[in-house]
Simulated assay, not measured.
Amino acid sequence: MDSAVQRQYVEFGVDNEHYAIPISDVHEIIRMQEITDIPNGRHYVKGIINLRGRIVPVLSLRVLLAMDEVSSTKHTRILVVHHLEEAIGVIVDKVNKVTTFNDIQPAPDSIAGISGSFFNGVGFSSSELVGILKLDEILLRN
Rank of each mutant, 00 (worst) to 15 (best):
M67E: 12
N102F: 06
N102D: 15
K134I: 01
G113W: 00
L129V: 01
R54Q: 14
G47I: 09
R54W: 02
P22R: 08
P106D: 12
T100N: 08
S71C: 01
V130L: 02
K94Y: 07
D68P: 07
G13T: 13
I55Y: 05
F119T: 12
G53Q: 07
G113F: 01
L65P: 15
F101K: 10
D103C: 06
S115M: 01
E85W: 00
M67Y: 12
H82E: 11
V10C: 14
I48S: 08
F124Y: 08
P57E: 09
I49D: 05
Q105C: 03
D2Q: 11
N142E: 13
V130P: 01
L79W: 00
S60G: 12
V92F: 05
N50E: 10
L135K: 09
L139H: 06
I35H: 05
S127M: 02
Q105T: 13
T36Q: 14
V122S: 04
I111L: 14
R52N: 12
E28N: 06
V130M: 00
I138S: 06
I104A: 04
L135M: 15
L140G: 13
V70C: 05
I132Y: 00
R54S: 14
M32F: 11
G131P: 06
V92S: 09
N142L: 09
H83I: 09
E85C: 04
D68R: 13
A20I: 07
H43K: 12
K46T: 13
F101C: 07
A66F: 02
N142A: 11
P22Y: 01
L65F: 12
N50Q: 08
V14E: 00
V81W: 03
G113M: 04
A66W: 01
V26T: 11
N40A: 15
E128V: 01
E69A: 15
E85Q: 13
I91T: 15
V80C: 04
S117A: 09
H82Q: 12
K97R: 15
L64I: 04
L65T: 11
D15Q: 10
K74S: 14
R7G: 01
L135N: 08
Y44S: 14
V56K: 07
V14D: 02
F101N: 05
R77G: 06
T99C: 12
F119L: 12
K74R: 11
I88G: 01
S24F: 03
V5K: 12
D109L: 11
